[in-house]
């Protein structure tokens, strides 16, 4: 029998209930939830959106930050000089910080320091969703996007502690103070909520690609449905070796790096 983490968490929850002898009801709702989840996983008609970043193509255009600019523009991401307050949905990090340092030991320095885009991995088992006390972040059943509801977030930042990728940012100050122009197509956020990339859920609904994918001049980012064997992303993953960030944590990241 496979004992998933979700079941484990629910079981511990149930034990807590039994231990203190209250909210017996919660056990039943918990049990129902897990039933729904297991039947949901059995049907594979659902999408699982994912992204593949070809670092070789990305390397061809050093100093290119078009994906980041497109995202910042599309989502009203403020610019703060103080690194403590920065908001990042997609940003770049030196290549060797993405993966275990041991693996890049003998890499040439300038290969090591190649700036590589990072963003929310839209995990299969997102720890941020597991810990959120209000359901302000959740995993969308239909396509697997880890969504944010900025109307509900209470700003406790538990999700930031939980995310093993540093993909979440908190609005330490009013974000509008860091914006020169406002894009009316997407709301800004407000002081005191957490935010992150949502694979441009609002653009996908209109049939568009994520802003970063669309903006990449090298076509280094491939976006698609990982559940569809015919999709371009699956074809690429079938024929080449790709890495994911910290897969050993069991979070099931859906952003792949071709190296």
């Amino acid at each position: 029998m496979k004992f998933t983490r979700r079941e484990f968490v629910e079981l511990s929850g149930a034990c807590l209930v039994a231990l203190s002898g209250r909210k017996v009801l919660a056990v039943f709702t918990g049990a129902k939830e897990s039933e729904a989840a297991s039947t949901g996983e059995a049907t594979s008609t659902k999408k699982r959106l994912g992204m593949l970043i070809d670092t070789k193509k990305c390397l061809r255009a050093q100093n290119c930050t078009k994906c980041i600019e497109a995202c910042d523009q599309a989502h009203n991401i403020p610019v703060f000089q103080n690194p403590a307050h920065q908001i990042k949905w997609i940003w770049e990090e030196p290549f060797d910080d993405l993966f275990s340092p041991a693996e890049t030991q003998y890499l040439e320095k300038d290969r090591k320091d190649v700036l590589t885009p990072v963003l929310c991995n839209q995990c299969d088992e997102p720890p941020c969703v597991r810990v959120c006390p209000t359901g302000a972040t959740w995993k969308r059943e239909a396509d697997g996007i880890v969504m944010m509801d900025w109307h509900r977030c209470i700003g406790c930042r538990y999700c930031m502690a939980a995310c093993p990728y540093g993909s979440r940012s908190f609005n330490w100050v009013d974000p509008r103070t860091g914006l020169k122009t406002l894009n009316p197509d997407f709301p800004t956020r407000t002081q005191g909520v957490v935010e992150k990339c949502t694979f441009c859920a609002e653009r996908l609904d209109k049939g568009q690609l994520p802003a970063c994918v669309e903006a990449c001049p090298e076509k280094a980012m491939v976006f698609g449905d990982l559940n569809d064997p015919q999709s371009e992303i699956r074809q690429l993953l079938a024929s080449s070796y790709a890495l994911r960030r910290r897969p050993e944590l069991g979070t099931g990241p859906n952003v792949y790096y071709l190296i």
């Binding site: 629910e10 597991r130 006390p133 209000t134 302000a136 509900r152 209470i154 406790c156 930042r157 957490v194």
Partner: peptide
């Protein structure tokens, strides 16, 4: 906990939308 919250006015969301899989919910309880 309260002074640490970004949007303290929304604190009741914890009880309005209880999430049984969140340890924080159980901690509050």
């Amino acid at each position: 906990v309260f002074v640490d919250m970004g949007r303290p006015m929304r604190v009741f969301n914890v009880f309005l939308y209880p999430q049984f899989h969140s340890v924080m919910f159980w901690d509050m309880l």
